[in-house]
Design a binder for these strands. Sequence first.
RNA 1: GGGCUUGUGGCUUAGCCUGGACAUAGCGCCGGGCUUCUAACCCGGAUGUCGGGGGUUCAAAUCCCCCCAAGCCCGCCA
Length: 553
Amino acid sequence: MYRETRDEIKDILRDLTGQEDAELVDGGTHADLASTIAFSLARVQRRPPVEIARELGARLREYEKAGLFRVEIKGPYLNFHFGEEYLKKSLQAALQSGYGAIASQEVRIALEHTSANPNGPLHVGHIRNSILGDTLARAFKKGGYRVERQYYVNDIGRQIAIVVWGLTTLGLPTQQEKEDHYIARIYIAANRALEKDPGQVVEIDELMQRVERGEKEMVRRFREAVSICLEGIKGTLRDLRIHHDRYVWESDFIRNGDVERVIERIRKMPQAHEDETLWVDLSEEGFENRYILRRSDGTTVYAARDLAFHIWKGRNFEVLIDILGADHKLIGAQLIATLRLLGEKPPTILHFEFVSLPEGSMSTRAGKFVSADELIAEVTEKALEEVTKRRPELSDRAREEIASSVAIAAIRYDIVKVSPEKSTVFDWREALDFERQSGPYIQYAHARACSILEKAGEFSPAYQIEGPHEAALVKHISRFPFVLDQVVQELRPHLLAVYARDLADLFNTFYRYVPVLRSEGEVRNSRLTLVKATQNTLKEALETLGIDALATM
RNA sequence: GGGCUUGUGGCUUAGCCUGGACAUAGCGCCGGGCUUCUAACCCGGAUGUCGGGGGUUCAAAUCCCCCCAAGCCCGCCA
C-alpha cells in the first residue's frame, strides 16, 4: 500500500505543480509523507514558500481520497497522513502469504557469491560475502525474479598448485579433521616449506603449466584437492542455510576453448599489446596499469578466465551480479571496462569492505583467521545455554534445534545489518549477543506473535485500528514491499535488516501496551488481525534474511 | 606517490546517492517494570563541535573543494 499511495501522491503533486521531480520525503514524526516542494517553487515564483504551501494545500484537498490520506499544511511543508482505508488495505495485503512479492519478472539473474579459493575453510571475512549474496538472492527470488546462485571455483590457481604440491611432497598426516580444515593444514605447511626453501617455487610453476596444458593426471589431482576442500565449504554453507545452484569450475573455460577464444579476440583489440606478455591498455578508460591476460610462459592469468566466465554468463542471463571483496575493486572495474570494449555484457558488482581481527587482517596462508565453523560452534553453544535456561522443559532435541536456528540468526543478522561499504572488526562479544538489534531479537518477536495466535484459535479478520501503537505498526508493515524493492534495485540488503528490526521494535511495544487475548469482540478480532499481519510480515522478512521464523523459542 | 572506501555520544550503528521541520537505534551507564498474551522484552534519564576547515544554498550529517586519520588496491597472485 505504501508504494502505491506514495506514487499516487507524487502524481498528484506533479499534476498540480508541473514539477517533474515532486520531492516526497519521509515525514518523520510530523507525518507519514511530506513534501518540501513549496521551497523550490518559491524560488521560481518569487513568493514566500508558506504562501505557496497554503494555496497548494487548498487545491490538494480536492484530491484527498476517502480515508486513504489527508493533507495538512504546516508552514512551508505539505504533510500527508494515511487514513483508515489505507490501514485496512495494508493489513489485508499483509495477510497474504508471499506478501512483499513484486509482480513476477521474467528476468534471469546470475548471482555469483562466496567463490572463495578452495585452499581452506571459510572464515568470518568470506561469510560476509556469502551472507550478502545469499540475502540478495533471497530478496530477488521473493521479488519474483529468476535467480541462479553461482559459486565460481578457482581450481587452477597458484594457491591450489601449492596445495597439490604439499599433498604429494610433504608427507603430512592424512585427513583426520573436516575436509577444508585438512586442506588448510596442508596449505599452511606448504607455504612454510616454500618460505624456508624458495627454490622449490619452480615446482609450483611447473604444476601450473602442466595443468593448464590439460595433462589428464594433473587435472585430476587439482580437481581432487579442490573437491576435498569444497566438500567442507559446502558443509559450512549448509549450516548457514546457503545453497548454490551451480558450481562453475574455472578450468572448464580452458578445457572448452573459451579462454583461447577470448584471448584471440583480445589480440585483435586496438588496445591490445603483445610483447613478452599479452596485455590490454586501459588508460583511455582511466586505468594506469597494464591489464595482463597471458604470462610470458604462455599460461593465462585469472583475469583471462574471468573474462571467459563473464562472457558465458552474459550470454545466458539478462542480469549479472557479483559479490566481491573491496580488494577486487580495481580488477573488477578493469573487467567491466574490457567487457564493454568487447561489446559483452558487464556485471554489476557489489563490493564489501573487509572484516579484520582485533590483532590485524586475516590470512589463510598464515593460519591467522577465525573460521566460520568455529564461529558457528561457539555461537550455537551459547544459544543452547540460553535456550536451556529459558525452556528447561523442552526435550534435548527441541532445544538443540532452536539453538541452531538462533545461532544462525545471530550470525547472519550480525553481518547483514552493517552496510557493505563499512569495514568491520570481528568481535566475539558482539557475535554472542542475542539482545536488541540481533537476529534472535527479531525471531523472538515472531515467536511472541505466534504464541498469541496459537492461544487465540480461530477468529474472523477485522480492521478497526485504533491507538498510536497499532497505527504505527500497520504503517510499518505497509512499507515491506517498498523496502524489498529498494533492496533489489539498489543491492542494499542491510535495508531489510534495519526494516525487520524496526518492525520487531514496534511489535514489542504494541505487545507491551495493547492486550490482545484479553480484549473482546471486534477489538479483539482487529488486534488478532494485526498480530497475524505482523507475524506474516516478520516471517517473510526473516526468510528473506535466511533466518528461521521460529514459532517458539 | 596515485586511486577507491570509511570517519556520526565511551563503544557499535542508521540516515548521505535523491539537501528540508527537534540526527536513528543498540551496547555500556543511572533509575524503574515479571500473580497480566514467552522479561532473548518494555519504560524513563544522562551522553553528539555528525573527523577538521572553507564554500554553495532560504536551508548542509547529506552537495563541492582542501586538510587529517584508518582500511583496501596499484603483481607475469587470485
